[in-house]
Design a protein around this nucleic acid. Structure first.
Lengths: 249, 249
DNA sequence: CGAGCGATTGAACGCTCTCAAAGTGAGTGG
DNA sequence: CCACTCACTTTGAGAGCGTTCAATCGCTCG
């Protein structure tokens, strides 16, 4: 529904689209999912004052690793990937963010990773200084962000286990499971799973190559664990089998 | 100096060693490094009231993955490893913690990993409920913990890049560099680097096997990049070379 | 219908793992 | 004081999983 609107017109650059004075929060798709869910009306109003809604076209860069971290973002529609690069071009995607996710929880002076839109994306932009001031004023907001950072830390540790110790097949199955669980959190069904990103992105997220990702999908399809459906969708035909493989048993 | 004291006597189990009423903070080795560095006298006093100093012998488990997270810890001496296990025993160490580090920043209901003492260790134990209450009272403390979580998140992302995209040699060099940098933060010299953990722990931290870790050390020694010294110490003979390898160039 | 990009498939290579044995060193007991 | 023990580390040989290089397929969009 969101992507339909956004597919209709290509936007060249990030472009203000509401903001202070207006009321972008009122129709925000992330309202129930993100920081905002924990806030009172007064806090929402103050957040509203410093926030600007931003639209980003597919494949556009939101910010780059090493740039001064002037702003934080809340994803209100679409999918974003975060990645780090080695000098020779090897890439590790550290996360895919969807509606409700916060970009920039690692509140440092400069961005530790590049953020890029996987699909056309809507963001809510918060100037860092102003947000930090608000955090001092509203401990509840800070508490909420801290809690989100905690969850992200736990997810990062799961990902380390995946990257360091799982086989290609286990990685793919874990990935599909986590997408399925996330879809449920988003209020969607657990099956089939939509993969907005390409094979290359999946490979760089799981520490594999495109070819291995593709071969593993084929193999899971052949074994009857999944079915590949049109529109970048994968149906989990054997959820228990998928879970069993994902956990290495 | 600390380990000398602790090597002198074996302690069977975690054992209170100071706490409310006393003043464990006064002589705390982490005082200048940890949360406490950002706190005022009043806050320190209140922390002091809920904290207990704990001594843990080498190889003892501090808590296990999945247990209810009743307490958080601050490492005040020694080295601790955190790890996650797959059902078949494969292990991923997600971090080595030293003096000043906080265990349990992922403030969830249950521990997401097992914590185990690599060396004899001193900890400062905070009951979770009481600490959370203090956090509400002292936003500055919460801010500090949030900031530590942010840093840990950034470190986790670096580790994902390492696990997913670096070669064995690059992993080892990155590991040595990070230990060297950490030693400087601890007020020690950058060279030589002390490795309190065994090859197996290094392997499980870097997503390698013991044999590959050993072979890679030998190879770096042969190429003149490092020298292996007695007492689990490694001298970085060619810091620039080490950095170059670590970053993949 | 043709162009072009992403995905799939194939074949061969190589880095790391696995299995196995020898080496090393700290702690123990004779 | 020295030999023994046991755990850890190192070294060797061979195998395998995932990669690399290359070609084909198939979908989407002009």
């Amino acid at each position: 529904m969101l992507s339909q609107v956004m597919d209709a017109d290509g936007v060249a650059h990030a472009e203000p689209h509401g903001g202070a004075g207006r009321d972008p929060c009122r129709h925000c798709g992330a309202r129930a999912l993100s920081v905002c869910a924990a806030l009172g009306p007064d806090e929402i109003r103050r957040l509203n004052e410093i926030a600007h809604s931003i639209r980003v076209e597919q494949h556009a860069t939101i910010f780059e690793e090493g740039q001064p971290a002037d702003a934080l973002f809340n994803v209100t529609g679409g999918t974003v990937k975060l990645y780090k690069l080695l000098p020779d071009g090897r890439r590790q995607i550290t996360g895919f963010l969807v509606t409700g996710d916060f970009i920039g929880l690692a509140l440092n002076e400069s961005y530790a990773y590049t953020a890029e839109a996987v699909t056309p994306t809507l963001l809510c932009r918060f100037p860092r200084r102003k947000l930090e001031a608000l955090l001092d004023e509203f401990p509840k907001m800070q508490r909420r962000l801290f809690s989100m950072a905690s969850n992200e830390l736990a997810a990062a540790q799961d990902q380390m286990l995946l990257l360091g110790r799982k086989t290609a097949r286990e990685k793919i199955c874990s990935f599909l499971l986590s997408l399925s669980r996330r879809a449920v959190l988003q209020g969607l069904g657990p099956n089939p799973v939509h993969l907005p990103m390409g094979r290359g992105d999946i490979a760089d997220y799981l520490g594999l190559t495109i070819e291995t990702v593709s071969r593993t999908f084929t193999q899971l399809k052949t074994s009857g664990t999944i079915r590949i459906e049109p529109g970048s969708r994968i149906r989990i035909a054997d959820p228990d089998g998928l879970s069993a493989i994902a956990e290495g048993s």
